[in-house]
Design a binder for these strands. Structure first.
Lengths: 213, 213
DNA sequence: CTTGTAAACGGAGGATGCCTCCGTATATGG
DNA sequence: CCATATACGGAGGCATCCTCCGTTTACAAG
């Protein structure tokens, strides 16, 4: 049809919105448990919708993965915004980084699938990289402005370090290791009260317990 | 295993060995092109064997992925051994790191699948991590022994940095970026001569804090 | 409230891929 | 050359993907 008005969008039906949400929720649950081997029909069943409905909202399996992924990344971004108002900038940064580790830990089976879809769409990759970098950037900037941490580390550096630390996300005990590494890293970011320019710092006594009680 | 019959291992038949090799070769080709969507039957066809033969050698898709993965990792390890004899230790390290970038670039579609299987088997994960760490370790040790680079960076650090740099392996132009980052990184590893480094990148503050061990 | 209609729903079913099973073919030792 | 263990190949059962279309439902106009 030669539709002359390109911007006529009917208000989406309420049930469509609701079902879309339900499917996303179910996908998160089912994929988290079953990883990438979970069948889409199981997702539909779990969401209480027909398989046809699932496919109308998400034409391919990848589209569904992508939607879930976007949501997760957005949630991490939102968390960063909330933490903006926290009183302690360094603690806020630390908490956000720890939240990432927990995020990976919770989604066990899904991480590989998410990484896979992220690898498939460079646009999505760019989006998530951007979003996470910005999230770190705001937290970092505040801590730097407060004079709490050094100013020569970029947000990309921190993101890469974080990714590297989560790389072994399925070896036994990886989470403890990652959290400890993160603490060391954040401690390293702090402006040292004793040395202004920490060029060759010997091992120092840890002022924080690495493991939570 | 307490095997009652000691060593009645007949010499494997020649055609079995040949077919196994053919399947691995075909899998590398097909997966590189089609990623994880490539059907095993396509692999069998490409290898010129029946589907049953493929399944006898590799009972599951993951087993096949794993075999391909192990082979690739082993090749990188072998490359490191060869480079041990190269005249310039720093150049050798640099070349090995660059080879990794090219490895990722070539296997486009397969990287995600490989990462996926690596995530599934912690033993395989440990193996590859070990193997690559050792590969870096030998190259690193030689360069350190030659007094060419600093001695306070561990092989794990280098591996993590490498992984981080390859993280965006599908954004347009990522390879150029990764290679540049690698060069900067290797330059940073060098023991700084009395004057400033000749290949200086004045974009950022060159001072980097050594990791606390 | 009633009614018309577009939009959404649900699931049957064709297509495709995974994997097993078994009859046939072949390499190897005697 | 024979015997036999070993490997080969592909038909077929089963699960999953995804499309298609008849039925149902939300929304708006009268």
């Amino acid at each position: 049809m030669a539709d002359s008005s390109p911007e006529i969008v009917r208000k989406p039906r309420a049930d469509a919105v609701r079902n879309r949400e339900r499917v996303l929720e179910a996908a998160k649950a089912v994929f988290s448990a079953g990883g990438n081997e979970a069948s889409l029909e199981a997702v539909a069943r779990h969401a209480g919708v027909g398989i046809g409905t699932l496919y109308r909202h998400f034409p391919t399996r990848e589209a569904l993965y992508e939607a879930v992924y976007r949501r997760e990344v957005a949630q991490l971004g939102d968390l960063a915004e909330q933490l903006q108002c926290a009183p302690e900038p360094v603690a806020a940064l630390r908490r956000w980084l720890r939240a990432n580790v927990e995020f990976v830990a919770t989604k066990k089976g899904m991480v590989a699938a998410l990484a896979l879809v992220a690898a498939g769409s460079s646009e999505l990759q760019a989006y998530s990289f951007d979003r996470l970098t910005k999230a770190i950037g705001t937290l970092l900037a505040r801590a730097v402005a407060a004079g709490a941490i050094r100013d020569d580390i970029s947000a990309e550096d921190v993101l890469r370090a974080l990714i590297g630390m989560c790389y072994m996300h399925d070896q036994p005990g990886w989470q403890t290791t990652a959290l400890r590494l993160l603490d060391v890293f954040v401690d390293g970011l702090r402006v040292q009260p004793d040395h202004k320019a920490p060029t060759a710092k010997p091992a120092k006594k840890p002022k924080r317990k690495p493991r939570q009680a």
